[in-house]
């Protein structure tokens, strides 16, 4: 049972952007996909969902090649994508957003996300950035998906909200494998088990997250001197 990318290639408006992406996400694992801006991290997630044109290689789910499957079908067979802005429907209420996400009852998420109770009927456009991210993760939890692709969840959030987000992602891993794209290195290290480094559209190294800074590609892939800074 894995979400497996092998020799994945993709292009944007005819220009190749992914050249060779190889990674496996296992159930219960949080795998951080790291690299500098423009390395192809978000494009990798979008290609898995069929939003960016795949030009080569394979996306396999439990051994089944998803090549050519439309986005809605990938979502239905258990891959859930949380875009950078949370990907919630701004014109719909919190409750309606949850209804659209899930196979289960919206109330089911209140155990893990109790803060949503007070926001139940509020339009998502009126939520704060942190509340919107929590709603996005609650939608992911309710979707029952076995694979979650989460793009830059920490972007623009205060440290206290980040801690809450980390807890939420930790809760999600009980039910699913998580592929996490993250620029905030400290946050990635706090939630992930393993890392994959990307550089210029290809994966270049992977290993346990504790060994990230020992990677020979770390400084180059993250675009700063090894051991310095907490974001890239």
């Amino acid at each position: 049972m894995t979400l497996q990318l092998s020799a994945l290639q993709a292009s944007l408006q005819g220009a190749p952007v992914l050249h060779a992406v190889d990674l496996d996400v296992k159930p219960g694992q949080v795998l951080a996909l790291l690299g500098r801006n423009g390395a192809g991290k978000t494009t990798t997630l979008r290609t898995i969902m069929g939003l960016t044109q795949q030009t080569g290689g394979h996306v396999r789910l439990d051994g089944r090649d998803l090549g050519g499957a439309p986005t809605w079908q990938r979502a239905r067979i258990g891959i859930y994508f949380v875009p950078e802005d949370g990907g919630v429907f701004q014109e719909l209420s919190v409750l309606e957003n949850l209804r659209l996400a899930g196979r289960g009852q919206p109330e089911q998420v209140l155990g893990a996300f109790p803060e949503l109770k007070a926001l139940w009927h509020r339009r998502a456009a009126l939520l704060s950035g942190g509340e919107r991210k929590i709603l996005a993760l609650a939608r992911a939890a309710l979707s029952g998906s076995r694979w979650l692709l989460i793009d830059e969840p920490s972007l623009g959030l205060a440290p206290a909200v980040l801690r809450r987000l980390g807890q939420a992602i930790a809760a999600l891993r009980a039910e699913a494998g998580v592929l996490l794209v993250e620029q905030n290195l400290r946050f990635a290290q706090s939630v992930a088990d393993d890392y994959v480094l990307m550089q210029r559209g290809s994966t270049v190294d992977q290993g346990p997250i504790e060994a990230l800074r020992e990677s020979p590609f770390f400084a180059q892939a993250m675009s700063f001197g090894s051991g310095e800074g907490d974001s890239a």
Binding site: W72, A75, R76, Y80, F89, L92, L100, R139
Partner: peptide, 20 residues
Amino acid sequence: LKVRAGVESQTLAELSGIRV
């Protein structure tokens, strides 16, 4: 609800498993 979701964003609707 699905129609309103599709009106707001077809991509998000498809990411939610809705056939637009």
